[in-house]
């Protein structure tokens, strides 16, 4: 078992003829993911590096796709999400970064009452080790096992997954939900899926400064998850009032500092690692304890 991505995942790559789309279509396929093809309006019917190209997501869906991954540049990314939502894809993963927050408010709102789940934007995607991956997470760092990973960061996710794998601890599914202010799935949406997943015995939560999502997640772990968790929070040394790249990584006033988040996790009985390697060790100790 796993969450979001499994043996039945069939991917449509939106923006398959672009530099990133075409590279990662190949990477996903090499990992063992079923890639049905991709879209590039105006090039439908062509073959791009071995992949069939469709004009629309609906056509890719007719050819068997049930999952979309979006690599199109920011100007077209919002349309790309709407297209996959209207086509009722099961899972939509948006890698593109730099999307206006108000556009995301409307996109997230349009998901109400519709069957699709949206991961991202500005995220690395989802990998179910040994089975399939949707997005850009390097396949080589992950290995199958009992740990679910959910993260607001991209590359930091890789670091933690790599550390877990190095200690011989595998993962059920790793989900990078992205660092934007208005994400599709958030910590709670993802933790709810991990709760129901029999293959997941422990969850690693990777947070960062800004907002209060980590505090809400800590509360959920303490009261609802029913499984142990360990955590990491990036930005312990970030100076207040500075924007650190992600829209989410802003500390202002007394809200959203790493110290507050770490305290919330610890109060909920969730150990917090100081480094990615320490997080992996904490996970190992919890699993064997």
């Amino acid at each position: 078992m796993s969450i979001l991505v499994n043996e039945g995942t069939k991917v449509c790559v939106q923006g398959i003829t672009g530099r990133d789309g075409s590279f990662h279509a190949q990477q996903m396929k090499e990992y063992g993911t079923t890639v049905i093809g991709g879209t590039r309006p105006g090039k439908g019917g062509e073959i791009h590096e071995g992949f069939p190209v469709f004009d629309t997501v609906a056509e890719a869906k007719s050819a068997g796709a049930n999952t979309s991954v979006i690599y199109v540049p920011v100007a077209g990314a919002v349309d790309a999400m709407y297209e996959s939502i209207e086509a009722e894809m099961d899972l939509i993963v948006c890698i593109t970064e730099g999307i206006p927050a108000n556009d995301m408010v409307r996109v997230v709102d349009s998901l109400r009452g519709r069957p699709s789940k949206l991961v991202g934007p500005n995220c690395p995607g989802v990998i179910t080790p040994g089975v399939a991956k949707v997005g850009i997470i390097p396949g080589s760092i992950a290995t199958p096992g009992p740990v679910g990973v959910v993260s607001r960061s991209g590359t930091l996710t890789y670091e933690v997954v790599h550390a877990l794998t190095s200690l011989g601890i595998g993962q059920s599914t790793c989900v990078g939900i992205g660092g934007d202010q208005v994400p599709g799935m958030n910590f709670i949406d993802t933790l709810t899926l991990f709760r129901e997943d029999s293959a997941t015995e422990l969850v690693v939560i990777i947070g960062e400064i800004g907002g209060a999502d980590e505090q809400i997640a800590a509360d959920y772990v303490a009261n609802e998850l029913g499984k142990p968790a360990v955590a990491f929070v990036a930005g312990q040394t970030a100076p207040p009032g500075k924007r650190m790249g992600h829209a989410g990584a802003i500390i202002s006033g007394g809200e959203g500092t790493a110290a507050e988040k770490i305290a919330a996790f610890q109060q909920a009985g969730i150990p917090v690692g100081k480094t990615p390697a320490e997080v992996a060790e904490l996970a190992k100790a919890k699993l064997s304890g």
Partner: peptide
């Protein structure tokens, strides 16, 4: 990546 950059600074 912003998260890894912050973790590196930490």
């Amino acid at each position: 990546g912003a998260g890894l950059a912050m973790a590196t600074m930490d």
